[in-house]
Design a protein around this nucleic acid. Structure first.
Lengths: 265, 265
DNA sequence: ATGCCTTTGTGAACGCGTGCACAAAGACGG
DNA sequence: CCGTCTTTGTGCACGCGTTCACAAAGGCAT
């Protein structure tokens, strides 16, 4: 899960729980697929299977939007597509700027999933003057100097940050100052924003680290079958064993193998 | 939040809550930054601020790992970096394959955040024969035919899927069949996997849709100040008003504007 | 050695999210 | 018009996660 809202303790906006909102796009995608196959109606069971969730959860989610189903029949696909789209605000056009057109930024610019859902790339912005004017995904790169004017001229309220970590907060500040109130952050940094601004982050390396944890656990469980509690290989911090704070237990290369790959980010 | 574990109801693996695991990489990053600045110790308050979380939450998170702090002083940075790295399994090398080297796959291959944390790209795999052998990020593209042998030869247990949605499930099946037990999915599809396999998904368009929801809500709240309940513009499904299921309430272009951008994905 | 001051570690309460299980609602056939 | 059968919508209970608040622990100065 590369997600995680910043600020606001999962306030249910207008009665719709945050967790439900996060699933609506999932339902929408499944419904859209059904719509293309001209399927007229779906049961909660079918749709839940397609979206990979529990059917009771799905029904409860929809109940927050209203009573859009028909008992004994199911949900009208087209109608539901429209309702969810409207609820998510996809019936209107959202101009978006992408700041930082490196490998990732360029990939985002070329990503079809954005344009196809009512999101329109208003501009691609990069700080490198040498790149200015270059075409990416059919759009000319604009220089960071123009950031404020681009945002104001196009009424942009959503910004995507794909810069290196070091530049992210500065870019963020400028975006917010210029009027952006929603930010999708791909830079591996914690962004600080004023109240009223939503930040969602997508962190590729964090996702892998979480997978690594579970992967290690799986491997560990197998090992435990033969030798339980091989868990404290070289650092059992028995309260009494570490009274020297400055020299505590250093990584101590050995036993567990090599030193962790500690590097920037 | 481009996140979302599939399967398993947030089981706390080995006593460490899933939510805590998801934050450990965040702490690790903050600690690494401190380590580079040669800061010897941090208080939970400082570190929490750097990681963007509540300090009580951070302390509780660390308490699951053990008692690694010193009261009145704080946490030893180096020591904690090591402990978290070990807990996350970053003290070992994880070979990873990336399948689907389009814009996004190439960006991932070039992303430094992977290699720097103990993740080594074992191979880049693409289905297009014309691409085979081409160099990306210093590695030669391999053809999908080699997928199984690559995984077995390198002992790969983590796979990254960056293919189009249509190919994702097939690729997933082959990965799992070949021995991969953790998958990071960038394709906009729900993957079905057997028990014991972890899937995390990163979905760029879903993140934007969630932001759009909140953005719309913000705009709506302002409007409500002048005219409350401008909420049911064209579809108040009063149970009695819609008895014809097949013809229910069509998007009905008008009133709300245009038809939602319903498209593939 | 003693006392003060800082900071950790955690017990307990609260709230959100999930899933079960069922009653109500409606379609459909006779 | 009535009975049956399907599927929704939801009341309820449970469990995870978050947060508060505080006692215990240790450093440090005197």
């Amino acid at each position: 899960m590369a997600t995680g809202r910043t600020h606001r303790p999962a306030t249910r906006s207008r009665g719709i729980p945050e967790a439900t909102v996060a699933r609506l796009p999932l339902y929408l995608r499944a419904l859209t697929a059904l719509s293309e196959r001209s399927v007229p109606t779906v049961s909660s069971e079918e749709l839940a299977a397609a979206a990979g969730v529990n059917s009771a959860k799905l029904r409860k989610d929809f109940s927050y939007l209203g009573s859009y189903g028909t008992r004994g029949v199911g949900y009208d696909v087209e109608y539901l597509v429209y309702q969810i789209s409207r609820e998510l605000g996809l019936t209107q056009d959202w101009p978006v700027v992408i700041v930082g057109i490196g490998n990732l930024g360029a990939a985002l610019a070329n990503y079809g999933g954005f344009a196809s859902r009512g999101f329109r790339i208003a501009a691609l912005i990069d700080a490198d003057p040498a790149m200015t004017g270059k075409m990416v995904a059919g759009l000319p790169l604009r220089h960071t100097d123009e950031l404020e004017s681009i945002i104001e001229d196009n009424g942009v309220s959503i910004g995507v940050i794909a810069t290196p970590a070091g530049a992210a907060q500065q870019v963020c500040n400028r975006l917010v100052e210029a009027g952006v109130t929603s930010i999708l952050n791909f830079a591996p940094t914690v962004l600080t924003v004023p109240d009223g601004v939503d930040v969602r982050k997508v962190d590729l390396s964090i996702e892998l680290q979480i997978l690594a944890f579970h992967e290690q656990r799986k491997a560990g469980e197998e090992a435990d079958l033969a030798q339980p509690d091989t868990d404290a290989p070289a650092a059992p911090p028995a309260a009494t064993a570490r009274t020297v704070p400055a020299e505590k237990r250093r990584p101590e290369p050995g036993s567990d193998g090599d030193i962790p790959a500690v590097m920037p980010a």
